[in-house]
Amino acid sequence: MLVKSIQAPLVQLRDITVEFEQKIALQNINLDIYPNTITTIVGPNGGGKSTLLKVLLKLQRPTSGRVVYNKGVRIGYVPQKIHVDPSLPITVKKFLSLQKNAKKADILHALAQLSITHLTDNRLQKLSGGEMQRVLLARAMLNKPNLLVLDEPMQGVDITGQAELYQLIHHTQQQLNCAILMVSHDLHLVMADTNQVLCINRHICCAGTPEAISNDPTFRYIFGDQFSKNVAFYTHHHNHKHDLHGDVCCTPHSYTQQCTHQSKNRS
């Protein structure tokens, strides 16, 4: 069951289809993003997750369909990573000041909130993966977004820093009172706070609310206690199935299945 709200959606995607050289990247995507919710997108590599974010961010024009933005929507974006020219001597403070309408007080506040004030004068090239993600999150905070879009926020972050960074993301959501749309493979960390999960493989295969079953006796018996701590599950219904190429090969009238998706800690 998808999350709904009495408030109007911040963004609505309607019948979004994207084609590249006659190859379908996304097909008939419909999605509402409501205020103060967390939506996590999962799916196989090449399934269209990043393309969906680009459409929402106006970085990719859909072949068909439309995106409807609430009049008051303000979007902050945290990419997987950015390329910084090694010869460009840019500090964290200078990088953040390049954000449109960035104010010094807001920059200092964002740095303090993410506990990276000590990095102010460090060069971007010298930052660790976790430090860079915090800087990118600070940059996204500067326009006080009510929708925060994160594309694989744990990219390049070591396992010891992942849980802390997710806590910071959750704290940021509460502080900004914003919605979050996030692409992630690290479901063992995000599922507890996610309102809805979308599984995308060129279209929305399935969508549902998370359901933690790590304490289920049968699950523990099959997988063991240690494995259960690193896996999160959610249960939902498919009304179709895919062939080996990812194409839908059965109609809603001929096929109904309940399935459970799982994610394992990749440490």
Rank of each mutant, 00 (worst) to 15 (best):
T63K: 06
T63N: 07
T63G: 09
S64A: 12
S64T: 12
G65W: 01
G65S: 02
R66T: 06
V67H: 04
V67F: 00
V68S: 06
N70P: 02
K71M: 07
G72R: 05
R74P: 04
R74A: 07
R74N: 08
R74D: 02
I75D: 01
Y77H: 06
Y77N: 03
V78G: 06
P79I: 00
K81M: 05
I82Y: 10
H83W: 13
H83P: 12
V84N: 09
D85H: 12
P86M: 01
P86C: 05
L88N: 06
L88Q: 11
L88E: 10
L88W: 13
P89A: 04
T91K: 02
T91F: 01
V92H: 01
K94W: 12
F95R: 10
F95M: 13
F95D: 14
L96D: 08
S97V: 03
S97I: 02
S97K: 09
K100G: 06
A102Y: 08
A102N: 00
K103H: 00
K103L: 07
K103F: 00
K103D: 03
K104G: 13
A105E: 15
A105H: 09
D106G: 00
D106H: 12
D106P: 03
I107F: 06
I107E: 08
L108W: 15
L108H: 15
L108G: 06
A110P: 14
Q113V: 10
L114T: 01
S115R: 13
T117G: 13
T117I: 11
H118N: 12
H118E: 11
T120R: 13
T120V: 15
D121W: 00
D121N: 05
N122V: 04
N122I: 01
R123H: 09
L124T: 01
Q125R: 14
K126Q: 11
L127W: 02
L127D: 05
S128D: 05
S128N: 13
S128I: 06
E131A: 11
E131K: 05
M132S: 11
Q133T: 04
V135L: 04
L136Q: 02
L136S: 04
L136F: 07
L136C: 08
L137Y: 00
L137E: 05
A138H: 11
R139G: 04
A140S: 06
A140R: 09
A140C: 07
M141C: 02
M141Y: 04
N143V: 12
K144N: 10
K144T: 05
N146I: 02
N146E: 04
L147E: 01
L147I: 08
L148F: 11
L148N: 09
V149P: 09
V149L: 03
V149F: 00
V149N: 04
E152T: 04
E152C: 03
P153W: 14
G156H: 11
V157W: 09
V157Q: 07
V157T: 13
D158V: 07
D158E: 08
I159V: 14
I159F: 08
I159P: 08
T160Q: 12
T160W: 10
Q162E: 14
A163K: 06
Y166V: 01
Y166E: 05
Y166N: 08
L168V: 08
L168M: 14
L168R: 09
I169A: 09
